[in-house]
Amino acid sequence: MASFAREVAYRIFAQELRDTTLVLERDLEDAYAPQYVVAPTGAKVNRVFVVGTLTDKEDIGTDAEYWRARISDPTGTFFVYAGQYQPDATRVIADAEVPSFLAVVGKVGVYTTEDGNIMTSIRPETITVVDAETRDRWVLETARQTLDRIKELEAESSPSIEMVKEHYSLDTEQYREMAISALESMR
């Protein structure tokens, strides 16, 4: 039943998503196959759930509204783009104050430049204004799940272990430090 299920929303810190450069080729048998990226700690991600601080927003649309929002967690910044095809999310960004806490559910967007740079962003499905407690809980949960993924990699039990070794050279220490410093920033 695995393929029947909705894609899980992964908990991933901004720094790790920014470092994500491994884009899986889609299953060509299936025109509707989702796009996945494999993050440096091994998560195979299509959808994410992030809670962070809106630090800047700009309507970069020309005819229709098209918002670029910067949403920060303790490790870095997520880029969220919302336009006419995400009317609810667009409204929330347009109305939200800078700074405020936002919770975002969305798909990871990937772009490869000609010289091979991979850039990630989030295409939101829902955005809501939340409080500091929800953010605190998200940082805790994201640190725990990141550390769990690192543990799985180190035990060589992660399904992504080969891909991570080959593509990212398995540098788990910097992501352990990232998770720990995110936790420490909450105290």
């Binding site: 630090t55 920060s72 870095g76 910044t77 940082v139």
Partner: peptide, 9 residues
Amino acid sequence: RFKVPAAEA
């Protein structure tokens, strides 16, 4: 309060 990295702030 918002725990944003210094450069982003």
